[in-house]
Each structure stands twice: as C-alpha cells, then as structure tokens.
Design a binder for these strands. Structure first.
Lengths: 215, 215
DNA sequence: GTCTATAAACAGATAGAC
DNA sequence: GTCTATCTGTTTATAGAC
C-alpha cells in the first residue's frame, strides 16, 4: 500500500463520478442535467443528493477524482544526485510519458476536457485544490530537474517560465487536438500520431535546454 | 475599403454581441441566461430573439465576431522573397505581437475565454468556421515562413507540428494564465510580465529553428 | 440505499401594446 | 425597434414509500 491518496467511493457513487466526469467534461457543468448523469450511471436522480448532497457536491467529487488520477502520472523516479545528462533524460522520458497519457490513455479522455472546463471557470475552489495538490508540486519538481540539466537556478523566473513553456506545448496539443488533427489530416490519434507529437515536444525540450545551458 | 469581413451589427445588436462574448466566455453557453445577457447589454430579453432569432443565433454571431477580431491580429507583412534570417525575424515579431494581444489586449480578455469554450465543445459549426477562416490560413502562412527560415519543406509533418508547438506555447500561457500567475507570484499581467512570457516563447522559437535548420 | 412523485424556481421563446 | 407579461417546458432538490 504505497498510495495515500483518497480513494473514490465505490458502487453507485463511483458510477456517478464516472458519469459526471464524462458529461461535465463534454458539456460543461450547467450544460449537464442531473437526469443525464443518473441515466448514464444507471441510477436515479435522487441518488446524487444522497451520495454527494447536491449537483455541486458531485462536481467537487469529480474534481477530487481528477486530482487522484493526475497524481498517478508524471511521477518520475529521480536518482539521489543526477548528472545534467541524467536530469535531461528524466525530463525527456517524463514528458514522453505525459504525452502518452494525455494523447492516448482512455483515462485522459475524460480527465482532460474536465480540466479544460475547470480552467475556463476561473479560480474557484476545485481549481485551487488541483493546483495545490498536483500542478504546483509537479511544476516545482520539473524546475529542479531543469536546473540540474542547465545549471540555472531552480526557482528563477526564467526557469519557471521555461518549464511552463515545455509542458505548455504538450498541454496545447491535447487541448487543441480537434484543431491539430484537422490540420494534420489525421483521422484519430494512434501510437504513431502521439509519437510524432512527443518527438516534436521532446526536440523542443532539448533545444531549449541546450540554449539555456550554463557552461 | 479593404476589409471584406462581415461587419458586426450596431447599436443594440452590437451591445448584445459584446455581452454575449463576455458572459459566454466566462460562464459557458448553457451557464448564461438570456436575461443576464439582456441585463448586461442594457436591454430586454425579447431583443435577442428580434436581432438574432434565438439564443443560439446570438452565439453564432458572437463566434463570427471572434473570427473578425482574430483576423485583425497575426497578419505579418512579408516581403516578396525573404531570406532565412528575415523569415525568422518575421516569425519572431509576429509571435511577440500575438503575445501582446493575447496577454494584455482588452479585446482578448473576452475573446480568449470564448474560444476556449468553443474548443471544449467539440467540432461544431462555429468551430469549423473559425478554423477555416482564421486558424488554417494563419497556420499555413506560419509554416511557409518556418520553411523559409529552416530550409525544411513547408507542408511536411515535422514543420506543421513544429509550428503548432511554437504557437501552442503561447496559447497555453493564455489558457493557463490563472495557473501561471499563481506559480509566478504575479498579481496581474502587465507589460513586464507579458514581455517575460514573450521572451521565453521567442527564445524557444529560435532554439527550435536553429535545431531544425537544414544547411 | 434506492426509487417515484412532486414542489418551487428558472429557462427560452413569444404575443401584443406602444 | 423596444418593451412587459406570459406561456410552456425543464431544472434541481426533496418528501416519503419501500
């Protein structure tokens, strides 16, 4: 038992979260009725109030589930004292793993649109939780690796922005996927397409590291 | 009269589009009531049906207005036969102009969230229009400049992906602005903050061009 | 815990006065 | 063109049987 993250409810509760994640992501919070959610979860509307208090409560539970799933990814195993080349290799492989998750994992199919909606809704409670529990710690860890790879200071403005840019490329490919696939003439995203995107992002990573390296 | 783009309605119609753009972007389509829109536009609910037929009609008109505003930006003036260095300089300045627009322009404050919602809603009619009228042409033009700067083929897979990555960084900084400002400890985005982001994105642009340059 | 039935509020669209 | 009043359907939340 390594994981200490909070477990999601099981049974009907879990089915409701699953359905909520899918529908909230696809149609937005207000665009989704509790009847739709209950139907997809194969239960009745009243069970939402029973398990989560309200529609809002279900949404909060969905956000918590997103945080749980995200924590499971992008967790590189870092050796005690990495050399610059080792740090760079870890950044490369973590970015590729993240690309694989975001672009091809079934889990991300529901998670990514949900987060996108969360971002658009401004800084509310769910976003704050996600930021504090996942985004901030991961970004900080990436900054540390970036600093080891380049010789820059880990918390300098330029390092933090460079890491955002590196991850941002990848996030964009996921967010803008409808646009990207259309322009690329891709029918769907398979291993080959995800690989091409990962290669692009990784190449930019190495180019950026090379350019900001301190001798 | 150079511009052939459709003009927005004036008077009450324009006020409704303005209000719709703001509220649809902030709260989503279903999250915004016609009464709210009418109140912000300082008119009555019935005027929405009168001017645009329905709530959907107003949304379509808002999307058209977004396309109009976007077309006005990111329109580089390219000399007849640019040298590689000139092409690179044009890419640099266009990217910086785009950064300035996205991060500091008041017009973008309403436009950006609206587009974000559009992206999340999957490929509907409004998104298709925006893609065909703005995104595709601009991306193609960027690819041509990228090809001139690097010596690569303008419509090769790697070129198209590289251009997406370059623009994507910038788009991410706009989309993820709530996250970025929090992590950077910024209160708001002024000229200094937008400049720091633009410098980061531009540096990555040059690094990527340098790396994929064909001798 | 699960479900049906219903209540109370709210949505978008429209009729018709001005 | 603009506005008020209203119609009709849908929403979330809840009461209460099982």
């Amino acid at each position: 038992m390594i994981e200490s993250a909070p477990r999601p409810p099981e049974g009907t509760g879990a089915a409701l979260i699953e359905a909520g994640l899918k529908l909230f992501g696809k149609q937005g919070f207000s665009g989704t009725s509790t009847r739709e959610i209950a139907a997809l979860a194969d239960t009745n509307v009243a069970s939402i109030a029973y398990h989560f208090g309200s529609k809002d409560g279900l949404h909060t539970a969905c956000a918590a589930e997103v945080a749980r799933r995200l924590s499971a990814v992008a967790t590189p195993s870092v050796p005690p004292d990495p050399t610059p080349d080792e740090a760079r290799a870890i950044l490369d492989s973590t970015l590729r793993a993240l690309a694989g998750f975001l672009l091809t994992s079934p889990a991300a199919t529901d998670v990514a649109p949900f987060i996108l909606r969360l971002l658009g809704s401004g800084p509310d409670e769910a976003m704050t939780t996600l930021y504090a529990s996942v985004i901030e710690p991961k970004h900080r860890e990436f900054c540390r690796l970036w600093a080891l790879a380049t010789g820059q200071a880990p918390e300098s403005e330029s390092t933090r922005l460079a890491v955002f840019a590196a991850i941002g490329q990848l996030v964009y490919f996921r967010v803008g996927l409808p646009v990207v696939t259309r322009r690329m003439g891709w029918g769907r995203i398979g291993a080959a397409e995800a690989g091409a995107i990962a290669d692009t992002v990784a190449a930019n990573l190495h180019a950026a590291i090379e350019r900001s390296r301190v001798p």
